[in-house]
Computed example of a mutant assay.
Amino acid sequence: MQPLFLAFWNVENLFDLETAPRLDKLQKVIGKSLQGWDDAVLSSKLGQLSKVIRSLNEGKGPDALGVCEVESAAVLGKLCQRIATDGGRQYQVAHADSSDARGIDVAFLYDAQRMQAGATFQHWVVKRKATRDLLQVNFTVEGQPLVLIANHWPSRLGGQYESEPYRMTAGETLAYWHQRIQQELGPQVAVVAMGDFNDEPFNRSLQEYALAVNDRDTVLNGRNPYWLNLMWPLLATGQGSHYYDGWGMLDQMLVSKGVVNGQSGWRVETPCRIEGQGLMAQSNRQPHRFGLEPGKRDLNGFSDHFPVSLTLQRVG
């Protein structure tokens, strides 16, 4: 069986056209930012995203791609169509609307010739109003279960420590989901959590609340369902997936015990990678942003985050 290439990317404000139908309350929040977001601008955005996505996996594209900061299933459908038109794969969409104030969601693009999507679960963190979300999709790959969870945790807007309790809540939710998945599907089931966590691997929300650690023995022998956070080796080299007053490793890949020991039928084939730097990096090595607001758009840009990726290999 061919390895399975998984990736995650914060695609930075993938909104549909300014004239697309949307709720009045959402239009009031984002309407000014979308002025002039017409066919030409959206086409440029989709083309830039397609270019990066098709470059992944040595030019074959990912088997599954988690994304965040997307407005709707409709605009994701346009992205899938653009990827196919540009010579890439034919992707399907797994998506659920959230109640985020800006209307941005998480979702998966996946190759239905390799993976079949089953049950889907969603949760969003509430801090007086809903913000950001988690999306779980139970996939089957040639008869083998694989659970993927896309995350976009509450931002650091208002201050890292002032906003930290909301990411702790998200982390606690992810840990609970992990436990429930093991109860329902077995303690060795393969689970991969990916996303823009808006915290570093060493922050409390990930280590203490999500139970995502850098110690294999804890993952394999701990009393609770721990994740192995695969970003630590990259973190040690000073790399990052996002730049804001310095590099940050906000985009991460976490794997369950059954992936670490291979008893799920899956194991990690290659270390995590930060992708797209050859295409996306500016002269200062930072991601080349596309932007959203009028006057701040760069049609040659992409996103303010680099994608991250992981390859799994079937065992047995």
Score class of each variant (00 low, 15 high):
residue 271 P to A: 11
residue 197 F to G: 06
residue 52 V to W: 07
residue 128 R to M: 11
residue 30 I to D: 10
residue 223 R to P: 01
residue 146 L to P: 00
residue 213 V to P: 06
residue 128 R to A: 12
residue 195 G to D: 08
residue 152 H to K: 13
residue 57 N to C: 02
residue 239 Q to V: 08
residue 27 Q to D: 12
residue 173 T to C: 09
residue 269 E to Y: 12
residue 127 K to H: 13
residue 307 P to I: 08
residue 271 P to Y: 02
residue 159 G to Y: 13
residue 41 V to K: 03
residue 53 I to Q: 03
residue 154 P to T: 13
residue 122 Q to S: 10
residue 184 E to H: 11
residue 284 N to A: 10
residue 295 G to D: 10
residue 270 T to M: 02
residue 189 V to Y: 05
residue 199 D to T: 11
residue 76 L to K: 13
residue 87 G to E: 10
residue 274 I to A: 10
residue 77 G to M: 01
residue 97 D to Q: 11
residue 14 L to N: 03
residue 108 F to R: 08
residue 179 Q to D: 13
residue 98 S to A: 09
residue 80 C to A: 15
residue 273 R to N: 10
residue 184 E to D: 13
residue 241 S to V: 09
residue 32 K to P: 00
residue 57 N to S: 07
residue 70 V to D: 07
residue 30 I to Q: 12
residue 117 A to C: 05
residue 86 D to G: 01
residue 213 V to I: 14
residue 238 G to A: 01
residue 4 L to R: 01
residue 104 I to L: 15
residue 201 P to Q: 12
residue 204 R to E: 08
residue 84 A to E: 04
residue 17 L to H: 06
residue 174 L to T: 13
residue 143 G to N: 03
residue 132 R to E: 02
residue 158 G to Q: 08
residue 116 Q to S: 14
residue 7 A to M: 07
residue 289 R to F: 06
residue 41 V to S: 06
residue 3 P to C: 02
residue 289 R to C: 05
residue 150 A to R: 07
residue 308 V to M: 00
residue 46 L to S: 07
residue 164 E to T: 10
residue 247 W to M: 09
residue 67 V to S: 09
residue 208 E to M: 06
residue 247 W to N: 10
residue 295 G to W: 12
residue 169 T to A: 14
residue 155 S to N: 00
residue 48 Q to I: 05
residue 259 V to S: 08
residue 196 D to N: 04
residue 74 A to R: 14
residue 97 D to W: 05
residue 136 Q to M: 15
residue 38 D to A: 03
residue 120 T to M: 13
residue 294 P to W: 05
residue 47 G to W: 10
residue 260 V to Q: 07
residue 39 D to N: 14
residue 22 R to D: 00
residue 2 Q to N: 11
residue 311 T to P: 03
residue 119 A to H: 12
residue 17 L to Q: 00
residue 25 K to Y: 12
residue 257 K to Q: 14
residue 171 G to V: 04
residue 168 M to V: 12
residue 102 R to P: 08
residue 307 P to V: 05
residue 85 T to P: 01
residue 146 L to A: 09
residue 268 V to I: 12
residue 309 S to F: 05
residue 175 A to N: 10
residue 186 G to E: 07
residue 43 S to K: 13
residue 218 T to H: 05
residue 225 P to K: 04
residue 45 K to P: 06
residue 188 Q to Y: 05
residue 13 N to C: 00
residue 224 N to G: 01
residue 122 Q to Y: 14
residue 122 Q to P: 02
residue 193 A to Y: 00
residue 270 T to G: 00
residue 211 L to Y: 15
residue 117 A to N: 02
residue 165 P to S: 09
residue 278 G to W: 11
residue 84 A to T: 05
residue 235 L to N: 11
residue 251 D to R: 08
residue 9 W to Q: 01
residue 151 N to I: 06
residue 269 E to N: 14
residue 72 S to F: 03
residue 245 D to N: 15
residue 181 I to Q: 04
residue 78 K to R: 15
residue 241 S to H: 03
residue 82 R to Q: 15
residue 107 A to W: 08
residue 172 E to T: 11
residue 63 D to I: 08
residue 231 M to K: 07
residue 183 Q to A: 12
residue 310 L to H: 07
residue 256 S to V: 09
residue 168 M to P: 01
residue 161 Y to L: 14
residue 72 S to A: 03
residue 300 N to T: 15
residue 236 A to K: 15
residue 177 W to G: 01
residue 225 P to V: 07
residue 3 P to W: 03
residue 227 W to N: 02
residue 18 E to D: 04
